[in-house]
Design a protein around this nucleic acid. Structure first.
Lengths: 346, 346
DNA sequence: CACGCGATTGACAGCGCTGACACATCCTTT
DNA sequence: AAAGGATGTGTCAGCGCTGTCAATCGCGTG
């Protein structure tokens, strides 16, 4: 009820409840050996005084920090979705998320990481690609014995958990859609080579092409680095390669959007003369016309799981359970208007 | 050189430098009264031991936290740009940014805010719209005497700084472009009513329309809430209103993209039969065809300034300087392919 | 009824740092 | 040469909490 005039301390709560501060501490930390009646009394006092424990003090005394780090390289929609999911899960566990940009290309990235974890005493760190494969960052974290969760790493570290999605299976399904509509000559736009997704998505594509006995023209496989602008260039090359492909599988929606843009500039009727699919179900997928058929990324769910892994780890202290957890999520196709039978096949 | 095996403490540094821990503290906090020679010696010891001060301890002892909060409602590209700018500036000052989502609609938002600022002891908070106008949040912050910087608030709080952009002037310039190309019948898509930008952008539009003696058909002013999906609906209504407008001024790029999408679905040639302009220079502005003429938002710069305001405030302790700082940034037009003379005027 | 054991609770030190204040130096000034 | 004023440095307590360990309580057992 009454708002604490000065922020109440644990002592004040203890007095009001008629117990020692240590008992209040026990209640706050949800320790078992507190009589139910005592607990109630303490809780009541906490509520009445509107007491909020001081995390600095808790941290200093208990050698904790209540902080989880989320390290990223490139801001954007993915990141902001991810952090929203991670924060949600962290809050439930009474933790807070420090979102820290790190330049992969920076020379003193190791120093930055080291400073972060030692000053803030992070209890765990989540690494999103391409940081999840950065050797220096990994080693620094390992040396400091900070629990780290790697999102979709190219090479899963032996003693650190990772969270993955089954991009390959999804890419298979999406490719099957294209082939099912009658496409035979399909181009592929690769993502950044330092992302696991790049490899997996291409493999899924290749799997199905081969299964159908379809050749992959090497000239029709180009790298767009997951970037719209690179995708523009890439799409141009692809569409200038005769005979023109009737469909393009872009490894993400930004590049798919670039393909749409180039296709339109070249005067092609979309999707009749050119089918295009993307990956991620990014916002742009529905903001262009035709809307992209793509694969939904459950970004928030991934983030939640990653945060959860850190949270679950804390009590154990002694490394990760064996085998190291490596959850893998299934992906879901989102079919929209960007696929049509190839004009020639009509 | 040698990496500290166990994280070094201030005492260890003091021993090595042959001074007291207090002197080391002085060096860390960059206090003046330390002899240059002593300072050098201490810094040397710090480097040799690779010492990193414990922020928990610093915070507890000095009643600080080295934490600045960034409160937001909706994740997205804007947010992630903003936080990148804010983090950069904070780092330079040795502060860290806690990015915290807050639900504007939530009933216990005040409780959430209160818990955050009291547990973490935030040294300052940055509020992005629409949080910058949330009365409860504002009051809670004020009651706790936390310095808060409001980004583009509808109503600038009397004793809190705000950072603004001159949306009105930019909207004028953009409208002038449309009219300069020969457009007379121009529709307008409004944003969310709880954003200052919504009002300012419309006013700028109206200013120029009136200055040219052009009427604003009330049926051609619709609300799209800054959302792509609402924008779709909105654009449909606008384009079905006879006589059809030859141009649409959307208050942001997402809605402009929606207008492009609808225009295309209706079979209009863009930009010949319909010119469209947006606002913000969001990623989507260049990812659709035709690319949007729009207004660049210097989001990172705004974020930097906001962080800087907090940083500058700290030493003073006794409120903000008078008058309360209210920096306002100018905006820059970005002209791309989405404007053409109206077909009829050709 | 003394004893033992688990469940509960409290006393106390101390986490790593900084604020307040005391002390020591080294100049100036008259 | 003594007093006054900067400047530089150290001592010590304590920030608000938790770990450790000891004390106390409740109660079944022999």
């Amino acid at each position: 009820m009454g708002p604490g005039r000065e922020s109440a301390t644990i002592e004040r709560v203890a007095d009001r409840a008629g117990v020692s501060s240590k008992t209040v501490s026990r209640v706050i930390n949800n320790e078992r050996s507190v009589r139910a009646e005592t607990r109630t009394r303490v809780l009541e006092a906490i509520k009445q005084l509107d007491y909020q424990p001081n995390l600095n003090a808790r941290g200093l005394a208990g050698d904790r920090s209540f902080l989880v780090g989320l390290f990223y390289d490139k801001p954007g929609d993915y990141l902001s979705e991810f952090q929203t999911g991670a924060v949600q899960r962290c809050r439930e566990a009474g933790l807070h998320l420090m979102v820290e940009p790190l330049e992969v290309a920076s020379a003193d990235i190791a120093r930055d990481v080291s400073a972060l974890i030692r000053q803030l005493r992070l209890e765990g760190v989540i690494l999103v690609p391409p940081l999840s494969d950065h050797a220096l960052v990994r080693d620094t974290l390992a040396a400091a014995a900070i629990p780290a969760v790697h999102i979709a790493p190219l090479h899963a570290p032996a003693d650190s958990p990772s969270v993955d999605t089954d991009d390959r299976a999804a890419a298979r399904k999406l490719t099957a859609q294209l082939i099912g509509h009658g496409h035979r000559r399909i181009a592929f736009m690769l993502g950044r080579p330092d992302h696991r997704a790049t490899e997996q998505r291409y493999r899924g594509f290749a799997d199905v092409m081969h299964a159908h006995g379809l050749a992959i023209d090497p000239r029709l496989v180009q790298t767009g680095n997951f970037e719209f602008t690179d995708g523009l260039e890439c799409a141009r090359r692809l569409l200038e390669t005769p005979p023109r492909p009737t469909a393009i599988f872009a490894s993400n929606d930004d590049m798919a959007a670039a393909a749409v843009s180039v296709g339109r500039q070249m005067g092609l009727a979309l999707p009749q003369q050119l089918s295009i699919v993307g990956f991620d179900d990014a916002p742009v997928a529905t903001m262009i016309w035709p809307q992209l058929s793509t694969v939904r990324q459950p970004v928030r769910a991934i983030a939640r799981i990653a945060a959860d892994l850190i949270i679950q780890h804390r009590p154990h202290q002694h490394g990760w359970p064996r085998p190291v957890p490596r959850p893998r999520l299934d992906l879901e196709l989102v079919l929209r208007g960007s696929i049509a039978p190839p004009a020639a096949a009509l």
